[in-house]
Write a protein that binds this DNA or RNA. Structure first.
Lengths: 210, 210
DNA sequence: GCCCATCAGTGATCTTGGTCACATAACAGC
DNA sequence: GCTGTTATGTGACCAAGATCACTGATGGGC
């Protein structure tokens, strides 16, 4: 099983003893695309490291609003599952498998034990934490200070950085992620197209802005 | 010096050895009200535990916009100084002493060393992270999904919970914290007053909503 | 090639909240 | 008390973005 997902490559720089414990005590789970992996409010009994696929984290509320936070990719861990207790009656954080996903499941007691035992694990956890905290700060900054056109721009640039210049997202999907509406995104993207920033196709577009 | 700020009371539940190390290696700093204690982008060389006073954390950008994140009170630590690297050319996180503040300054190497050495420290750090991360999630939820009236309500309720029913804030200060404008806050608070939720005075108001 | 479903484009209108321009009001110092 | 300063109240107007109501495109299945 393990050899199909080379932990040492996906999570480089950890201590040898830690790799061995990971192989021994963590188990691999395969999760089909579309599965909801985490619904906040449920008690977290384990931490996940992503080996393959993309996990999308977003907030939603009872009125059907959604708001994209960030993606977790191979080599990254879910900070929320590490530390989060957030729960509000009318809103929650949701993790959803965007593609088929393979995760390494770590029971919470090892997660704690290793913090004292392996420096590299400790730094990995801190690093993960940092990255996610920073990402949230950036998000707050965006929605507090920036208008839709700027937010859309930085959203697209984030996508391009991850997935390449061919972005296969519909206007509706983008609107949902930004908690906006399709029409607004359509209009803004039309403008961007007129500026020569993109070439649009049916279910996707090509980002041509340098 | 130490005896004026009883660490054992302000930060209860830590291990005896840890208290002793804290007394030995951490030093107390007194900071006058209004001081800017942290400007993101500068490298963090130490962590702060707040012994007395209130530290306010907010984001700002180059256009003079501000956005309140949360307060740090005695018995709490600054998660940002623990983990944050956030830096964007046009925006930053600022920590400012709202009152005269006394902090315990912990050089970063002890902070790390203790994580392996004292279980109680480890849990304290995790707890701090959790609280701050949750707070940010809640904030995102607010600005993404809620209108100004709801945001104002939850802002006031947060203040009341901390400072009591006599809230000494001007409309302008509230507007700045919420990145709104004074007129909007004035109007909304007038409405609240008509609902019998508050009694307003010149530089303050009394929250009477049950 | 026709039908249907999905996706995209666009004008009209509405709502929220920001901005402007004042009018009061309250207090502080003299 | 008078005066200047700061805080608040309010109407008029503006702008961004949401919503509504459509019209076209595009493509897949049969």
């Amino acid at each position: 099983m393990e050899e199909r997902y080379p932990i040492r490559q996906i999570f480089p720089g950890l201590e040898e003893g830690l790799y061995e414990e990971l192989e021994q005590y963590a188990d691999i789970k395969e999760i089909p695309a579309g599965t909801q992996m985490l619904r906040k409010g449920q008690t977290i009994r384990s931490t996940m490291l992503v080996l393959d696929g993309i996990v999308k984290l977003y907030q939603d509320d009872e009125e059907g609003n959604e708001f994209f936070m960030y993606d977790i990719e191979p080599g990254e861990a879910c900070a929320v599952s590490m530390v989060c207790t957030y729960r509000q009656e009318n809103s929650q954080v949701v993790a959803k498998a965007l593609t088929d996903v393979v995760v390494l499941n770590i029971p919470i007691q090892y997660m704690d034990e290793w913090l004292g035992k392996y420096k590299s694990w400790h730094y990995f956890v801190i690093r993960t934490w940092r990255a996610r905290y920073d990402e949230l700060l950036r998000t707050i900054n965006d929605i507090a200070f920036r208008n839709m056109d700027e937010r859309l721009l930085s959203y697209i640039e984030k996508q391009v950085e991850k997935m390449g210049r061919q972005v296969k997202l519909t206007h509706q999907e983008i609107a949902t992620d930004l908690n906006s509406s399709r029409e607004v995104i359509s209009r803004l993207m039309k403008k961007m197209e007129k500026n020569g920033w993109l070439i649009s196709h049916r279910n996707s577009f090509e980002w041509t802005k340098p």
